[in-house]
Amino acid sequence: MMPALKVEHLAKTFPLKRPFFGPAPPGVRAVRPMSFQVETGETLGVVGESGCGKSTLARMLVGLLEPTEGMIEIEGKAIGSAGPAEFGKLIQYVFQDPQSSLNPRKTIRQVMEAPLKRLHGMTRPGRDKRIAEIFASVNLREEFLDRYPHEFSGGQAQRIGIARALAASPRIIILDEPVSALDVSVQAQVLNLLADLKSRFGLTYLFITHDLAVVEAVSERIVVLYFGSVVEIGRADRIFAAPRHPYTSLLAESAPVVGRSLTAPEQKGTELPDPLNPPPGCAFAGRCPRATDLCRTREPELKQMGEDQLAACHYPLEN
């Protein structure tokens, strides 16, 4: 079967300002060359802490940022440097902050109509019918259409954000922390709605979050990012229970769990490496209890470790 989304050697380097004298510095490598694929109908979770490059990755996948190198393939078709409008019909984005992703001076109807008009060239009656269908599928009342964004609560605004993404009839939706701005009791409503929509419309999701419990509950496979690189990929039900990379293990131990006593899993410096002055070798070596000189000099590659689990570590954890 053809994967819904295939990414090969995708990387983004942000150039730094050239100093008045001397050559330009090498630039910040926000995303280092990474490759992975998402099967049709799958939810791939992407976890990582702030500064790991997950938002940069997401913005490249929907065409809002141009990759420095590498290739994005959607359903077998390579997408070059086409603008967001080309991407828009295949892949859509749900933003973290539902309020700031809606123009405060537009009614919800205007927001919903834009993708139908611009991407699909639908006529007025066609648009009205489609909006009614979509609103019914995300459990929103049609009377909301003539209101303005500030009149909605976070959960409702996020449903509108999802409805807008659906309006483009994409194959893939990138969910960038879609529930982290919401209250817990509303979080579950939105997550369940997303699961329901996925099976109903045959969607494929890329679910970006920093919340391990949420990502485990919704994904089939999970990618763990650290400092712009993939450090581990594995099945959601296995990766936190049997991590191979020490960073994944640290993440799993840090998540607060009812019934586990409080122990600081790490007493070494918690600072991320300086992106302007990245260390040679493994970026995690400075925080890793298993690091040796090899780790500090040579960057580990992503290697197969057991059945459908990959990790980038010279000294992977044994199970």
Binding site: A188, A213, E216, A217, V218, V257, V258
Partner: peptide, 21 residues
Amino acid sequence: LIACVPELGGGRRELAAIPGL
């Protein structure tokens, strides 16, 4: 509310939600 909070180690599942606002 406790049921709404996903816990690590629970696997893939339907989450409980509280209807309404």
